[in-house]
Amino acid sequence: MFPLSPILSPKGQGGGLRILTHVLALSPLAVLAWDFARGDLGANPIREVQFRTGKYTLVLLVLTLSCTPLSMLPGLKWVARFRRSLGLYAFAYAGLHFLNFIGLDYGFNLRLLREDIFEKRYAFVGLAAFLSLLPLAVTSGSGWARRLGKKREQLHRLIYLAAILTIVHFAWQDKAKTVEPLVYGGVVAGLLLVRVVGWVRRAARGTGSQTSSKEP
């Protein structure tokens, strides 16, 4: 076991993995900061920051979404424990993406921002994706989990909307209409399908009793 794990995760189990998750999720940011400091982001660094943070957000969203379906597999139940931190990292990169857009790129120029967010469908959808992640990040703590109970689980299904909006945003900003957004779209559709099948089954099983409240 990783020596630090008892500090970060009192129960010990999986502490090393937790650290690994943080390291892996933060390493692209470290590389980005390093490249930025060295002037290695090409001739249009603000654009490069925008592309990278966007890509990291999407990858982290897909990883977050794959936690629950993976945890349904025999012996992989513990994967679900990584969902929250991955989701928060996705939100963090989305936040950087948003701040880079309004701050570094547009210099908080409200006139230009209004025009470009409301006249450009890709930007509008991107903002909608970010805003739909916001309540999930706010209610991610255990305090909110207790307060909202079952409702929180339903609220957090918004992440599928956020992922779909993110992919639409990605596709609409793609000048060359490449297949990449479609690939992400296919993966998210597959993950959503797994969940929908789960919900339908549970609903069919639960028609007699109203008691089952746990995720399968």
């Binding site: 993995l17 690994l20 892996l24 390493s27 692209p28 590389v31 490249d35 990278r52």
Partner: peptide, 22 residues
């Protein structure tokens, strides 16, 4: 289990860092 997650995380991070050609 740890190995599996480690391998998964490593693969994901390689995909993740794919944008850093520089």
């Amino acid at each position: 289990r740890q190995f599996l997650v480690g391998a998964g995380a490593l693969t994901a991070s390689l995909v993740f860092l794919g944008g850093c050609r520089r």
